[in-house]
Amino acid sequence: MSKGDRFKYESLQDRKNMAEYLRALADGFDSGHIVFTRKDAELIMSPLGLVEFVVEAKNREGRMKLNLKFGWREGTEEEPLTDDSLSIKG
């Protein structure tokens, strides 16, 4: 689904495909250019400057959920929201 400047994709994936998507996101943040494509829909994003990063992980009765959220404003430099550090290990 793509409407204007919105892109949405939902599916079930195996761990290998998820790792590939996450590597592509990491490469996009590194290069400053992320392109999302599905059929005839495309959205290009340019993460520059500071990026707001939210991680939410849940384990409720054996049902696991991980939400990652990234946000930024184009063309602005912002101060970091916090100096708190996060550790993620595989």
Rank of each mutant, 00 (worst) to 15 (best):
L50M: 13
K8L: 10
R6C: 05
R60C: 02
L81R: 08
G4R: 11
W72A: 00
E74L: 07
A26F: 08
G49L: 01
V54P: 00
E20W: 01
M1T: 13
V35T: 11
S11N: 11
S87K: 11
N17G: 05
R38C: 11
K3W: 14
E56C: 12
Q13K: 06
K3R: 13
L12R: 10
L81N: 03
V54A: 11
K39P: 00
G49E: 05
E77H: 11
V54R: 07
L66R: 02
N59D: 15
T76P: 00
E61I: 04
R60G: 05
G75T: 07
A19R: 11
K69V: 03
Y9K: 08
E42N: 09
D14N: 14
K16V: 15
K65A: 10
F7C: 08
T37G: 07
E56N: 15
F29H: 02
V51R: 00
Y9A: 06
L66C: 11
R23E: 12
A19E: 09
R15D: 02
M1Q: 11
L81Y: 04
M64L: 14
L86H: 08
G32M: 04
K3T: 05
K8D: 14
M45I: 15
M45R: 07
A24M: 06
I44W: 03
D83W: 04
Q13S: 01
S46F: 06
E78I: 08
R15K: 12
F53A: 07
G49M: 11
D84A: 13
D84H: 05
M64T: 10
A26K: 06
V54K: 15
L25F: 13
G28E: 02
A26T: 07
D83V: 08
V35W: 00
G32P: 00
L43A: 06
N67A: 04
R6W: 03
A41Y: 05
I44Y: 00
L50I: 14
V54I: 10
F7V: 04
K8I: 05
K39G: 01
A41V: 00
S31T: 15
K65T: 13
N59Q: 12
L43S: 00
I34K: 02
P80L: 15
T37S: 15
E42Q: 15
A19C: 12
K39A: 06
E74G: 12
F36I: 01
R73G: 10
P47R: 01
S46P: 00
I88Y: 09
F70L: 14
D30I: 04
K16F: 08
E42D: 06
F7P: 02
D30G: 06
H33A: 02
K3E: 14
E79T: 10
G28W: 02
L43Y: 01
Y21M: 13
A26C: 11
V51M: 03
E77N: 07
G62Q: 05
P47S: 03
E61Q: 12
L86A: 08
E10A: 12
A41G: 04
E79D: 15
M45C: 08
L86R: 05
G62A: 11
L86S: 01
G75H: 08
E20Q: 01
K8C: 08
D40V: 06
E77M: 09
I44S: 13
M45A: 13
N17I: 15
D83S: 15
